[in-house]
Write a protein that binds this DNA or RNA. Sequence first.
DNA 1: GCCTGTAGTGACAGTTACTGACACTACCAG
DNA 2: CTGGTAGTGTCAGTAACTGTCACTACAGGC
Lengths: 189, 189
Amino acid sequence: MQIMPRDGSQARTRLRAAALELYRERGYDETTTAQIATRAGVTERTYFRHFADKREVLFDGEAELRAILVNAVATAPDRLAPLPVMVRAFTAVVPLLIANRSVAQQRAEVIAVTPALQERAYAKTAALIDALTDALTARGITRPTARLTAQVGMAAFERANRAWADTPAHDLTTLIAQAADEVLTLGGT
Amino acid sequence: MQIMPRDGSQARTRLRAAALELYRERGYDETTTAQIATRAGVTERTYFRHFADKREVLFDGEAELRAILVNAVATAPDRLAPLPVMVRAFTAVVPLLIANRSVAQQRAEVIAVTPALQERAYAKTAALIDALTDALTARGITRPTARLTAQVGMAAFERANRAWADTPAHDLTTLIAQAADEVLTLGGT
DNA sequence: GCCTGTAGTGACAGTTACTGACACTACCAG
DNA sequence: CTGGTAGTGTCAGTAACTGTCACTACAGGC
């Protein structure tokens, strides 16, 4: 067997790249974890030491995203209303999204055609909402309201993100603020 | 082997009951699909003819829920603003929720302690949001706004549902309307 | 009463995601 | 040079899920 560098992060990186490639080339269902491992130059067992399951390999960035969001909420000015706090948080994440845009695009294409991956994506979004709920609660907002705020904020963010994907010329920061405003118009009158 | 009635819906019903029992008795992870099938008096293969996977057996009611929601949106008065349409839709589903309350409670307990089931629950919620988005689009609302509305409406509904679980004395219909109102206050000023 | 089609099922073999246990190797601290 | 630690390979095993085929209950026409 080949001698492999002991730095685990390298194997992890290669596994991520190999999985994305294979999922794009032959589809998620037609790819086995053994194939991913082989392409990355490790064994299947090593794959499962780095990622909990076959899906998780595509969702490695979530922790970083969550950290930025939570920090932005925590450092928001006091007295700022709940939804503006959300706008602030999602705005803080814009640079990361811009930096990762091309890989994110490839990921999104695979997820869009794979129900199993969509399911995981929903769970990751829910985890972000949980984290945002906690962060809002720490600001003194009651938990039910905090949860509602986090969900509504996430909905606005997704709306902005989709608009951004359609018309990349627009500024994502502006789109986020507009989506938040739009929420407040849905009640009519 | 025993002679089994040919009416598939009976096996399906027994499988649902057996799965809920076993998941509650020993936990989801410690339950095998073979055990569910045995308790329901069928083979494992028959289980997978009725349900796509080990999780789906707990989420059989979604189609009915979706039908009611979509119908309520379709038959809502013209000129009603988007969010009030959502309130109307979720209000229409209240009787079903009241009727199923005890089973729903047991289901919720199992789901609450099982990440794999939570993931599926998120996916089911997302499917409802998709259906609501389509229904709103049919009313002439643009798709991005329809999607935002469906997500915000679902967030309000969940907020009402949680409040209802905590204080069952309150009227769910009222709680839904209040949650929708609360959304409009999140912007401040 | 018999024939025929259809839907539901049992039996069985096979693939693959995932796990536990153990041994080995690169590297780091002293 | 030594001992500890983290990452890995190997192997065996479990359980979710699938394909295929044969069989059985039942409904309808004749």
